[in-house]
Design a protein around this nucleic acid. Structure first.
Lengths: 233, 233
DNA sequence: TGACGGATTATGCAAATGTATAACAACGTC
DNA sequence: GACGTTGTTATACATTTGCATAATCCGTCA
């Protein structure tokens, strides 16, 4: 007795690709690369496994597309944050740092997704180049923001070191905050990040908290939201 | 025609467990969790797959053991570095920071291994507890070293924030240095790390470079190697 | 030296995985 | 409203995986 053929709707290529990429990312984020089988991806995207081959040729290619989408999204957040604040250089830098230290950037799924693709990236030259490019673009943007600060002139070499160090602080806090969300109070990551970056650069970024929701409203009665998770005792 | 039975030697349980754990780590580090199949592990360890079951019961248990071994090794490096230097608090802190920013801690394989186990850790309560414990132990040790500095008295809350920030710098530099080794000159990570941690704490750690091999010999004749800040070209 | 325990290997198996191919049906076109 | 295109599903298949069990033979001890 042949199974009844399941009904379906034809949809645009863009829509199908997006759904498949999203499903892949969610699965990798939650359960690692092993959980992202073609069947699981297809089910979550509401289609059958054949479509993966149809739109991406192979599972590997789908994974590549998913990784590209991830990287683009991460850098976009920082860009948007800077674009939203137009005032002083310090404010712009503060907004940039803060945006990388709260959701959706700081998120267990994001770290899981990033870690899940780490090996794929290392063994795939195309993805490795993509990674390096994204990393340097992020760091260069950071360096530009640092250079714009009103400070006694800095040699280029020093700017480079400062950018590397500040980038490291952000990466490290991103990692720890995402992996142990219970370990930090809401807004604590942002506060620590601003203080540390400021200390490295000899500037005071903690003044510019008016744009940082977590710090302007220490309204503990309403501290709900994705950050809530238990107090750091 | 039955295959000839392969000759073998009996060895101690400790030796076999060690070999299997090492093989597992190497495979995960190089090719991710997917590469660490029971057959591949056994082959690399010079045994047959059955031994995995014999000594560890299941592959999952072997992975747990491998992760425990990894974490223990990572923290041991920092402990040893501090133990080796007995002088001032600044020197001890500098030695601790520097030890985490050069091989074997800074190593592509180490990051690969760590990332490969990230999902396993998150989904396994026992491993998650182990991870949290190791992380906090490391950070607490760092905080102790910070508290020992000769500075105007610091409130406990500030010490905590400083420890978190310094830990983040170390983590971030470890990550970036391991993933893009071409992007940094030898010793550059250590130098940047010491400068950044010093800036955060208001101390000058860069004075204590006598114990840092990479910095005592600024051999510039070799600085044009593949480390010339990975200028993508 | 011979026998016995158990460490180690060999074999088998069910389940899962990625991919290839064929069948079908939804939608635009005439 | 019939038709053809092709997006989509269904099926098949070889391969790989982890694990269980049976078959061996290494080392030790009497």
């Amino acid at each position: 007795m042949p199974h009844e053929r399941r009904p379906y709707r034809r949809e645009s290529e863009a829509s199908r690709r997006e759904a498949l990429i999203l499903a892949t990312q969610e699965l990798v984020a939650a359960g690692g690369p092993a959980a992202a089988t073609v069947r699981a991806i297809a089910e979550r995207a509401g289609v059958t496994p054949g479509l993966i081959r149809h739109y991406f040729g192979s599972k590997d290619e789908l994974n590549r597309a998913a990784y590209r989408t991830l990287m683009d999204g991460m850098t976009d957040v920082g860009m948007d944050a800077v674009a939203g604040v137009g005032a002083s250089a310090e404010e712009r830098l503060a907004a940039f740092v803060a945006s990388s230290l709260r959701p959706p950037v700081v998120d267990a799924g994001a770290v899981g997704l990033w870690a899940g693709y780490l090996h794929t990236v290392r063994s795939d030259p195309a993805l490795l180049a993509l990674h390096e490019e994204a990393y340097l673009r992020y760091r260069d943007l950071l360096q530009e923001l640092i250079a714009a600060l009103e400070r006694p002139d800095c040699p280029e070499a020093r700017l480079r070191q400062e950018a590397i160090a500040c980038n490291a602080v952000i990466d490290g806090l991103w990692l720890e905050g995402s992996m142990l969300p219970r370990g930090f109070a809401p807004g604590e990551l942002v506060r620590i990040g601003l203080a540390a970056v400021g200390a490295i650069l000899g500037a005071d970024l903690t003044r510019h908290t008016m744009f940082i929701p977590e710090l302007t409203q220490p309204d503990l009665t309403k501290a709900t939201g994705p950050d809530r998770q238990g107090a750091p005792q």
